[in-house]
Design a protein around this nucleic acid. Structure first.
Lengths: 352, 352
DNA sequence: ATGAAAGCGCTAACAA
DNA sequence: TTGTTAGCGCTTTCAT
């Protein structure tokens, strides 16, 4: 009964069994230096026999890299992030890297602790979907120390020099809004987390980091391009929680004369759809509706929902690829990667 | 040359800066041995100053445990698993353990490689939702070598002695079926992955490891208890893929006189609902429908769907807890943990 | 081609 | 309370 795996098989054990020196065995097992046919054969047989598994910890110690990547995200149970993580891990595995996932719940204290922890684990690199809040500058510190970091989905404050992989939020929202405009709508409501600087969002100097702000800007831009005046009453402030969003939309939408509604993220899309059901709105006869992210249910309800879909799996892969490139060329500067969204036209939007 | 280590501060660096010996510094930094107030203060200041982060790799080497856990699952992007993983990681983090997630896509070759890889990483323990296929005996080997493993959701063949955390599949399906029986239904169709030994499932000696087989057995059991004869024509073999499942259900259900339908997993539930839409069935007037897993869309469609819900987050936590207990008491035998499911009664099922 | 030996950064047993 | 020293398992010079 070998209960304790303190007795794990080491290179030395293999070497002894193969009757060669430790370094010869090490060479064969790590497939690096040179070794004679006979030595190689003896070592491999001994390793097989003893059931040798190289100790990645020890290897990491001496090689100076752990082959571990940290992924710090808000919540793996959100479909968007779980699809992204799938793309991410697929690509990382192909490169021989494993991924440690940490959920921050958008809490900057948790984020800070997580980053420290991953730094201690000596991860080779980091994918970070930062909490939008100032305070912690740990990410910046780690980056300055030479830890490769790729931002995902959004750029936190003070993280200006790190590369970002994300949906082109602004352009995606512009597409979605233009879809409605092309159908003849002019009274277009939008449900989103409204930032403080909403009114000044079109000033090119006004910063916008959170996805919702960028998406709102895209909406405003599309209106402007079409010569439609933005009506503040049509901008509905919806919390990032489907129940609360449903309440907000139900209440505020009823007071408008909107002929169309655009929800700028998956959670608010969920809430908005519930609000529309509650209001008894006939879609698309009373109101055209375009949501965000192609969730399961959007093709299960009737009418099926037109959505702005983002390439979740690809986004994850792109983030992985960028990080892998940084690992290989640490100094080479990397440009942001913004992937386009796509309107999936279905039955919830129609000509006015 | 060693990459990327130029900046990493070590205990020795701190010791030098604090003008004490390496071991004194190590003692205060790891908070173990004893040290004088003055020494402690000097060391902590020096550590702060230099920005010292302990190297978890080195610590793992000498302590013999990595504080890393492996989670080997079919696919993180499936809502069930992402919710489970959330519960799992929450609990693990609280215990100071991080989780490496690996997707197998139910491919036993990938599973085998993943297990070897995690063994090399010297994870302290493993959560494994095994592919149901014989072949690889790596999990067994690792377990015999003393690596704590907890099975999740299902018990693979040849893994009889490992503890399992799962939904009580059989009982859950029995509950769901009884819900329909209680409403007066006797012609109850079931959509599931039908195992080869379906006909003999009620023999207590007949083995059933895959969740779908256990759920089918629960269905049969409920019928038997109610004195209803099981009708093979009502057992619909549906692939684990919502499109194919929709086709199978649409075709086979039409040929029956069923007044109710029970879908035994989330994917088949999705497909079944599409099939019912395609058939133009009025729910619940033409047919009562009960699905599996409380997915977002089940309350978004109309009528809202009655489902058998499993406690996903709790399942993840339970798996983590069991593994943590094994870590602390490696020899103590552990019993399986089967959590109950619950019928969420909504509008898709009604009195016949 | 092979072997001896020096780390990688940490913990822990043992002295002092 | 401190410091010295010997590992943990692997990679990697540097001789031979």
């Amino acid at each position: 009964m070998t209960i304790n795996r303190a007795d794990s098989v080491t290179v030395a054990d293999v070497a002894r069994a193969a009757q060669v020196s430790k370094s010869t065995a090490a060479r064969v097992l790590s497939n690096r230096g040179s070794a004679s046919q006979t030595a190689r054969k003896k070592v491999l047989e001994a390793a097989e026999e003893l059931g040798y598994y190289p100790n990645a910890l020890a290897r990491a110690m001496s090689e100076g890299r752990s082959k571990l990547i940290g992924a710090v995200i808000p919540d793996i149970s959100i479909p968007f992030f779980s699809a992204v993580v799938r793309g991410l891990t697929d690509r990382m595995r192909a490169a021989g890297l494993e991924v440690i996932i940490i959920n921050t719940d958008n809490n900057s204290t948790i984020e800070a602790h997580s980053l420290e922890l991953l730094a201690m684990k000596r991860v080779d690199g980091l994918i970070l979907a930062p909490v939008i809040a100032d305070g912690s500058d740990i990410a910046r510190t780690l980056a300055q120390r030479g830890l490769p970091i790729v931002l995902f989905d959004r750029r936190g404050p003070g993280l200006a020099d790190l590369p970002l992989v994300a949906l082109d939020h602004e352009e995606a929202a512009r597409l979605a809004t233009r879809h409605l405009i092309d159908l003849g709508h002019t009274q277009i409501a939008v449900a989103t987390q409204v930032p403080d600087n909403a009114a000044r969002l079109l000033d090119s100097t006004e910063p916008a980091t959170r996805p919702s702000a960028l998406r709102l800007r895209g909406y405003l831009l599309a209106l402007q391009e079409a010569g439609i005046r933005a009506d503040p009453a049509l901008i509905i402030d919806a919390p990032y929680n489907h129940l609360a969003a449903a309440d907000a939309v139900a209440e505020q939408l009823a007071a408008t004369n909107a002929s169309a509604l655009f929800a700028t993220d998956s959670v608010v899309t969920h809430g908005s759809f519930q609000a529309l059901q509650r209001l008894g709105a006939e879609i698309p006869d009373d109101l055209s509706f375009i949501g965000f992210d192609d969730q399961d249910w959007t093709t299960l309800v009737s009418p099926q929902i037109t959505v702005l879909n983002q390439p979740m799996h690809d986004l994850g892969q792109a983030a992985a690829e960028l990080l892998i490139r940084r690992l290989a060329h640490p100094t080479e500067p990397q440009a942001d990667v913004l992937l386009p969204g796509e309107v999936l036209t279905r039955a919830s939007t129609r000509q006015l």
